[in-house]
Design a protein around this nucleic acid. Structure first.
Ligand code: MN
Ligand code: MN
Ligand code: MN
Ligand code: MN
Lengths: 218, 218
DNA sequence: TCAAATATTTAGACTAATCTAAAAATATTT
DNA sequence: AAATATTTTTAGATTAGTCTAAATATTTGA
């Protein structure tokens, strides 16, 4: 049995290695876990002792098979709980992440199996992120960020890249949520901003930063 | 914010003081928390510093108002989660306690409020124990243990005193659950055992130890 | 009542997880 | 290829929570 802290480090390493493939460096882990590089080094030694990561001094780390499985299990639990919180307890997608950060550490395989069953085996969480199955496999689907499309493109919002509260609150204000249809009306080549129509209703100008974070069915 | 360990000590103190009213002694806490008396003494000092208990060396402890509120909040969370696990996830009453021991420590008032709402504000958990409301008030109802009744008495099972797995598994085997009607057919004055009829079906001899643990509507 | 038994606290040590400051290794520039 | 900057590790300290063994206080009961 791992401690909560060990679990969080494994998840952090997984998150970093998702983006930058290859070895993960100490400072990147320190940034995510909000600890010092010294603390990270300490923990890396312990995780290496337990064969959860491959660690070469000064050369960064990578997850072993068992370390990777633990990380995807945590992501599975996190996203299933988020789904539960939104679908059953009627939380907003703005608020579920923090709560799921706690719930994901509750052990018992039977709990997550029954929860999955109860929720009807959802494939995506409230932010559009795929929920890995019990074997750690993610569902892939065709999606691209909105900024890559041209004027006239209509598409359904499938997910968001960033999960910052402020971003989600901003989308709420624009009445944009998963499933909303977005149409590109105008595009500004200078700053990448675009005018979009939201569910055939209001039009809004959104910045390139926003359009890059909106994932559209493609 | 308290640590998980501090919370568990407060709950342990609450549990003991429920039975033996007055001050709670060190060894009783050590027994419940499964730690040494020395560890308990350590923790008592810390809890006293935080004004969660009143502690006089060698004289035992009692909960302050705020300590007591934290304990009843934990019991509320524990029992609501147990209810959820049985009613929604279809766990047996045998298995929910351990899981609830973890879930009860997940913070966020909004979570427990919405869970309570979602479950329809249940008043009793799967073992028949009252679920305190948000103010810490318990629902009282008329109930007595089966051993106090005489031959001919019929009654509905409202709860169990002991929550030992073996006891609950034994009741499952006898097809006794909350709501089951029990009738006393015979009583043995020598050892306190009694023959009972279960939901107008099978008859079984149960020991005094068992009948003392069955709480009947009175 | 006072000696023995029991309960509780103190002393001192250990582990996990953290920190800061300093040292060492690696990477980047000139 | 040095010099400099950056990254990472080590050293040493701290806190929460735990333990065992020893000391002390309280209770029991002869
Ligand atoms: Mn999340
Ligand atoms: Mn999510
Ligand atoms: Mn329980
Ligand atoms: Mn219960």
């Amino acid at each position: 049995m791992l401690t909560r802290t060990e679990e969080n480090y494994l998840k952090a390493i997984y998150k970093v290695s998702e983006k930058e493939n290859g070895r993960v460096n100490t400072n990147a882990i320190a940034a995510i876990t909000e600890t010092s590089a010294a603390s990270v080094t300490d923990m890396l030694k312990r995780l290496a002792d337990k064969d959860l990561i491959l660690y070469k001094k000064y050369k960064g780390v990578s997850l072993t098979k068992s370390g990777s499985k633990i990380a995807t299990d945590l992501i599975r639990k996190h996203r299933l709980w988020e789904y539960f919180l939104v679908e059953k307890l009627e939380f907003s997608w703005v608020d579920v992440h923090e709560i799921a950060e706690e719930l994901e550490h509750v052990p018992f395989d039977s709990l997550i199996d029954r929860l999955d069953e109860y929720l009807g085996h959802p494939k995506f969480d409230p932010h559009g992120d795929p929920i890995p199955n019990a074997e750690g496999k993610f569902t892939i689907r065709a999606q691209r960020s909105l900024d890559g499309f041209d004027i006239g493109k209509k598409g359904i919002l499938l997910g968001v890249k960033e999960h910052h509260k402020d971003f989600l609150i901003y989308l709420n204000k624009l009445q944009i949520s998963l499933g909303t249809e977005l149409e590109i009306l105008e595009k500004n080549n200078y700053d990448g901003s675009m005018m979009i129509k939201i569910d055939n209703n209001a039009s809004h100008l959104i910045s390139e930063k926003v359009s890059k974070n909106l994932l559209i069915k493609s």
